[in-house]
Measured scan of single mutants.
Amino acid sequence: NMTTNERRVIVPADPTLWSTDHVRQWLEWAVKEYGLPDVNILLFQNIDGKELCKMTKDDFQRLTPSYNADILLSHLHYLRE
């Protein structure tokens, strides 16, 4: 019986294949993992993996503070390698 913190996010390895639900799961995981403040996951609700991967730093900064944008982008970049 796992707690929420221990729950593994199971999403496709390639972020471009993510559904909007996968994006939400990834964001929820990242918020907990990195202790990100002020991430409004609802702002990302219509973004799927293909859109997420096209987003620039400016795009991320429209949805979340700069600090969060940096961490989310670097993790996304890591996943795409």
Rank of each mutant, 00 (worst) to 15 (best):
N1W: 05
M2Y: 06
M2A: 03
M2L: 10
T3L: 08
T3D: 09
T3K: 07
T3G: 11
T3A: 10
T4V: 10
T4E: 13
T4S: 07
N5M: 14
N5I: 13
N5C: 11
N5P: 08
N5E: 14
N5W: 11
E6I: 12
E6H: 12
R7N: 08
R7E: 14
R7H: 07
R8C: 07
R8Y: 02
R8T: 11
R8M: 04
V9N: 14
V9S: 15
V9Y: 09
V9D: 15
V9E: 15
I10K: 15
V11M: 14
V11N: 14
P12A: 05
P12Q: 05
P12E: 11
P12N: 10
A13E: 15
A13C: 12
A13I: 14
D14G: 01
P15Q: 02
P15T: 02
P15K: 00
T16K: 09
T16S: 09
L17I: 11
L17W: 10
L17V: 12
L17T: 15
W18L: 00
W18M: 02
W18T: 00
W18I: 00
W18Y: 01
S19E: 06
S19T: 08
S19K: 09
S19F: 01
T20F: 05
T20H: 11
D21A: 12
D21C: 08
D21W: 06
D21Y: 05
D21S: 11
H22S: 03
H22T: 03
V23S: 01
V23N: 02
R24A: 10
R24H: 05
R24W: 02
R24M: 11
R24Q: 14
Q25R: 11
Q25Y: 08
W26I: 00
W26V: 01
W26T: 00
W26D: 00
W26L: 01
L27W: 00
L27Y: 02
E28A: 11
E28R: 08
E28C: 10
E28W: 06
A30F: 03
A30V: 08
A30R: 03
V31C: 07
V31A: 09
V31F: 05
V31H: 06
V31S: 11
K32C: 08
K32A: 07
E33G: 03
E33K: 13
E33H: 07
Y34L: 06
Y34I: 05
Y34M: 07
G35N: 10
G35R: 10
L36D: 03
L36R: 01
L36S: 01
L36N: 01
P37A: 12
P37I: 15
P37F: 06
D38T: 09
V39A: 05
V39W: 03
V39P: 04
V39F: 13
N40D: 14
N40I: 03
N40K: 08
I41H: 08
I41W: 06
I41L: 10
L42M: 12
L42G: 13
L42K: 11
L42P: 13
L43V: 08
L43C: 14
L43F: 07
L43K: 14
F44G: 03
Q45K: 13
Q45L: 04
N46A: 10
N46P: 04
N46F: 06
I47R: 02
I47T: 04
I47V: 12
I47E: 01
D48Q: 04
D48P: 04
D48Y: 00
G49M: 01
G49D: 01
K50N: 13
K50F: 13
K50S: 09
K50W: 09
E51D: 08
L52I: 07
C53I: 07
K54Q: 07
K54W: 03
M55N: 03
M55Y: 07
T56A: 07
T56Q: 07
K57A: 13
K57I: 15
K57T: 06
D58L: 10
D58M: 03
D58Q: 08
D59I: 02
D59K: 05
D59Q: 10
D59L: 01
F60L: 08
F60A: 03
F60K: 00
Q61N: 09
R62P: 03
R62G: 09
P65D: 14
S66M: 04
Y67F: 04
Y67K: 08
Y67N: 15
D70H: 11
I71T: 13
I71Y: 04
I71Q: 13
L72T: 02
L72D: 00
L73D: 06
L73V: 10
L73Q: 06
L73C: 14
L73N: 05
L73T: 11
S74R: 12
S74L: 05
H75D: 15
H75L: 03
H75A: 11
H75Q: 13
H75V: 02
L76G: 01
L76H: 04
L76F: 02
H77W: 06
H77E: 14
H77A: 13
H77Q: 08
Y78E: 15
L79C: 15
L79F: 05
L79T: 12
L79A: 11
R80D: 15
R80P: 11
E81Q: 12
E81G: 15
E81S: 14
